[in-house]
């Protein structure tokens, strides 16, 4: 099945405007693992006939890593450029599969003049399922599987979204198992605050190893998450335990797309 991914520019040329903009983000656009998450979400959007569009080549880094690294100049340059583009297309509602883009667009753009309704993809998918637009085929995709959810810091503590991803996992035919540190007490994967782009400081353990260890203690078959960075960190963590063939790291969007047979 080919994906239907209109860009804002194409839509505008046709005199149309989408209901919602899918902000793909840099990871979702360029990182091989994250691209799969992007596609899973698009499949869901296509299946539900959501009227959406992407910015494509006009999208720019949201500026999140620059802001966390302390470079407010670079951040604000990025933000203002993006706001100009979003304004040009009169964007009102945005969905993103990256909690970092989500947080920045939602909380940090308004002060610079960018006001949108911003939602995380797990919230949108939950909405679609609740409205009956997406049906999960109880084909036993996850039957008997244990799934644990790793809270992305920028979704959980930063924005108090704990339920949407869990509600989705509960709709699968697997079992949701929680780690000892979860929800408000969830331990970071180690990537936030621009750490993704640098080596960690000297210590006696990598943060992602500590977190993966905890996930493995639940005996989960799948580590679910809702952030491309967490995904990378947990995947690397599994490798350090040589468990990459036994345990899978999947985004909630991928879990749902699989369960809906998309």
């Amino acid at each position: 099945m080919s994906l239907h991914v209109p860009t804002m520019a194409e839509m505008m040329a046709k005199g149309e405007s989408p209901e919602i903009l899918f902000w793909v983000g840099c990871s979702g656009s360029f990182d091989d693992r994250a691209k799969k998450i992007t596609k899973a979400l698009v499949k869901i959007l296509n299946e539900c006939k959501v009227n959406f569009a992407v910015l494509g080549a006009e999208e720019n880094c949201s500026g999140d890593p620059a802001k966390r690294a302390g470079n407010e100049f670079t951040f604000q340059m990025q933000a203002m450029m993006n706001i100009q583009i979003l304004e040009g297309y009169d964007v009102k509602k945005i969905v993103t599969a990256c909690p970092h883009c989500f947080n920045t667009l939602k909380n940090e753009y308004p002060e610079l003049g960018g006001n949108y309704e911003v939602i995380h993809h797990t919230q949108l998918i939950q909405e679609l399922i609740n409205q009956g637009q997406l049906a999960l085929k109880g084909g036993g995709t996850y039957k008997g599987k244990k799934i644990t959810f790793h809270d992305p810091c920028y979704l959980g503590r930063a924005n108090d979204v704990y339920d949407a991803p869990r509600e989705l996992i509960k709709k699968l035919d697997g079992e949701l198992v929680e780690m000892k540190r979860c929800k408000t007490k969830g331990l970071c994967c180690g990537a936030g605050g621009a750490q993704m782009f640098k080596e960690a400081e000297k210590g006696d353990k990598e943060i992602n190893v500590e977190r993966t260890e905890e996930a493995l203690e639940t005996n989960a078959d799948i580590i679910a998450t809702g952030c491309p960075f967490c995904n990378t960190m947990m995947t690397d963590g599994l490798k350090s335990f040589n468990k990459e063939n036994e345990v899978e790291v999947l985004d909630v969007a991928e879990l749902i797309a699989n369960a809906a047979d998309l």
Partner: peptide, 19 residues
């Protein structure tokens, strides 16, 4: 980020290649 609008060295023109 400043040069090509992403934290890695990718060209903005390639943003939609995944499609």
């Amino acid at each position: 980020i400043e040069n090509n609008g992403a934290p890695w060295q990718f060209s903005p023109a390639d943003r939609l290649n995944w499609k």
